[in-house]
Design a protein around this nucleic acid. Structure first.
Length: 638
DNA sequence: CGGACAAGCTGA
DNA sequence: CAGCTTGTCCGG
């Protein structure tokens, strides 16, 4: 992608098929310079002395435009362009990705409209690797291999396995590892998990069972039997996959946030496909995209149900609005759960700060920024001004604007009153209220204060409140309460429902499955108790929700029934025009085709195409505009 | 990406 | 016209 067209693709092989007039010369290799933003490839000669240490994928040093830079060999024995004096490469740095992975990187550069270097870097070692170690001899069950008795080996192709939140996935992982070994399938089993901590625990558990798990890039590149890792592990340099398994495939951690916004499970699926290996995607709550693409197996329903948490719905529709976010059901649950000794009670509210929306207590006018009109919120100038009863505003507070950062005293702009009501409280305010209501300490955990609250201090017990981040920081809980679940259900994203159910899954793992001894409760406060997400959570059955979601997506032409790209930057509009084809002169029909673009406000534009083949082809063949331009495929926030 | 080089601006 | 900035081009 993006390279010079000249020369075309030439089969590798050290100059074996070169024209006779080149026989005496050094072979010519094609190199991708390690310079992001330079979407070009350059040819160099390979001195005979370096022939044996260079293959496709090898990291080399080259001189480009007077600069010494790194690069990757992507082809050997290419037709050199005529009329250009070629330089020899400057040296060999060490091992790089195997040739097979170079091709996957080229595919990914197309699929996510990004620079090839991004993916080549992801597949390369951080430090110089001069040579690879020898992989361990796999002590497979030699006798069973030929006998054919027992379970059928897992066939090729990708499939989806629905597994309840509290079901241990280790048996499934071991089954995939064993099946690959039984099938005498050469290559590596790739095990992917969404978080670092999980990866470490998984690697440890596998090693304790005698499974050889690679440590570091070199072992993976040497073809170690098993690789365990997070998103980045999709680019493990294993030359060949025997199988792949992705745990919690619904987790958004698998998508890179920065452009190119590649998705790790999709890379794993593609690699497995190319290697003819099976790929198992495991999730308690598979997304519509996964369900649409892969055959699902669900296993026994009663087992699945038992692995979901007990979910209690606090229907807030008839509650007095003045009770705020702290319903009687919530306070009861906290009181009952907190001293069970099964870990803390965790409350989740996705709003930081104290008061995010205020109204004047005497005239009712909303507190807004006097400069830009944005809602003003309280901010304390003095640290920890503890005041009994947690009033709406405290001495020392000021009204601050999140948008333009202007600050003013806590005085109503309309009537001059200094008293306010909190219409939308944040975590800090609710923490104070809850503390006052319970008469015991409540600890706040937000993403902003990473190491403030020690894991031990939180995990031993007590009441904890925080934003979504708290679900990543606490491992075990007696109860988890979502104070404003509607915020998740109604988030302005098309994947909001799936994300909301994923939160219940996360909470479910903290409190345990309803079939488990001593498991806790997940409390959901909502004014939409009939919502399909709530039903799915209560019944421990994500099936109907995803079916409903798919029907909706089909109707609205959203993924997986369309492919989307979010383009942003000062020249986004111009670039979209090129992509959509307003003034394209290439062959074929040009007019209002199946590809369209709509403005999303600001300098953001959304491109929609029937599928990725069409979309990515268009993106690849449209020259980029000048200046900063971000192209994010498969955006979620639309 | 970043170096080279050309065109444009300034001050005497 | 030296000395500097700004912009465009291009690399093997």
């Amino acid at each position: 992608m993006g390279g010079d067209a000249e020369g075309g693709r030439v089969a590798p092989g050290v100059g074996a098929l070169s024209p006779s007039h080149l026989m005496a010369d050094d072979p010519v290799i094609r190199v991708v310079p390690d310079i992001p933003g330079l979407a070009k490839q350059f040819d160099y000669t390979l001195p005979v002395s370096l022939r044996d240490s260079v293959a496709v994928g090898t990291r080399v040093r080259i001189v480009l435009h007077g600069r010494r830079v790194g690069g990757w060999v992507v082809a050997i024995g290419v037709d050199p362009p005529h009329g250009v004096e070629l330089r020899g490469i400057d040296g060999v740095t060490g091992c790089g990705p195997p040739p097979e992975l170079i091709e996957v990187a080229e595919w990914a550069a197309w699929r996510w409209a990004g620079p090839l270097t991004t993916f080549l870097r992801a597949a390369s070692p951080e430090r110089r690797v001069p040579r690879l170690p020898t992989p361990p001899v796999v002590t497979g069950p030699e006798g069973e291999r030929r006998s054919g008795a027992g379970e059928a080996p897992v066939g090729g192709g990708a499939s989806l396995l629905r597994l309840a939140p509290s079901s241990d996935p280790l048996p499934v992982v071991l089954e995939v590892v064993d099946a690959a070994r039984r099938g005498a399938r050469p290559g590596t089993v790739l095990v992917m998990v969404p978080s670092r901590g999980w990866a470490e625990r998984m690697a440890g558990r596998l090693r304790r069972r005698g499974v050889p798990v690679a440590q570091g890039w070199s072992e993976a590149a040497a073809g170690w039997p098993v690789v365990v890792g997070v998103r980045a592990a999709a680019w493990t340099p294993a030359p060949r996959l025997a199988a792949a398994i992705v745990l919690d495939a619904h987790d958004e951690a698998y998508q890179e946030e920065r452009a190119p916004t590649w998705v790790a499970w999709a890379v794993a699926v593609e690699r497995a496909r190319r290697d003819g290996a099976p790929c198992v995607l495991v999730s308690p709550c598979p997304t519509a995209e996964l369900v649409h693409q892969f055959p699902v197996s669900t296993g026994d329903r009663s087992v699945e149900r038992a692995g979901w948490p007990r979910v209690v719905v606090a229907d807030r529709r008839l509650d007095d609005p003045r009770t705020g976010l702290l319903s009687d059901a919530l306070v009861d649950l906290v009181r009952r759960s907190v001293d069970l000794g099964r870990g803390p009670v965790v409350c989740v509210l996705n709003r930081r700060g104290r008061a995010r929306l205020l109204a004047c207590a005497s005239c009712g006018v909303l507190a807004r920024c006097t400069r830009c009109g944005w809602p003003a919120e309280t901010r304390s100038t003095t640290d920890e001004a503890r005041v009994k009863g947690s009033p709406a505003t405290r001495p020392g507070d000021e009204l601050a604007c999140r948008r333009c950062a202007s600050v003013r005293p806590v005085v109503c702009a309309a009537c001059g009153s200094g008293r306010f009501k909190v219409l939308r409280p944040g975590v800090s305010k609710v923490r104070e209220d809850l503390e006052a209501l319970l008469g015991r300490q409540v600890v706040e955990v937000t993403g902003a204060a990473p190491s403030d609250v020690g894991e031990d201090r939180v995990s031993e017990g007590g009441v904890v409140i925080g934003t979504e981040a708290v679900l990543h920081r606490v491992r075990r809980a007696a109860a988890v309460a979502f104070l404003d679940f509607d915020q998740h259900l109604l988030a302005p994203r098309f994947g909001a429902a799936e994300d909301a159910l994923a939160l219940v899954v996360r909470a479910g793992r903290m409190v345990g499955g309803r079939g488990q001894e001593g498991s806790g409760v997940v409390l959901v406060q909502t004014r939409i108790p009939e919502h399909a997400v709530i039903t799915a959570a209560v019944h421990g059955d994500p099936g109907p929700l995803v079916a409903e979601e798919l029907a909706l997506r089909r109707q609205l032409l959203l993924p997986p029934f369309a492919a989307l790209a979010l383009v942003s930057g000062p020249t986004a509009e111009e670039y979209c025009r090129r992509v959509v084809g307003g003034d394209r002169v290439s062959a074929g029909p040009v007019s209002a085709g199946p590809v369209s673009a709509v403005p999303m406000g600001g300098d953001r534009w959304l491109i929609r195409a029937p599928d990725h083949q069409v979309l990515c082809d268009r993106l690849a063949s449209s020259p980029r505009t000048e200046g900063r331009l971000r192209v994010a495929l498969d955006p979620r926030d639309v």
